[in-house]
Amino acid sequence: MDHMAEIRDFLKKLLSSRGDRQPFTDTSSFFLSGRLGSVDAVELVVFLEEQFEIDFSETGFDQSQIDSIEAITSLLQSEKVG
């Protein structure tokens, strides 16, 4: 499974645990739209750190960095992952 498929799969599980089985696209907003909450954001960050060694301690963290598949893609690219 490639990196983005793994991330999509993880987000699908997060949404489903909230009873949200609606589809999402690369530009769908997860957090700013309220589909997912702050607890889910922490889970996603921990997942990204563990799977792709993304380190937010240097740059600081902003929810908009992980708000959509598109945003996560550019975050991984800026960290030279994926």
Binding site: F31, L32, S38, A41, V42, V45, F56, S57, T59, G60, F61, D62, Q63, S64
Partner: peptide
Amino acid sequence: PATQLIAPAGF
């Protein structure tokens, strides 16, 4: 900003 409340170390 509302988007930096979860972990505001950078802020």
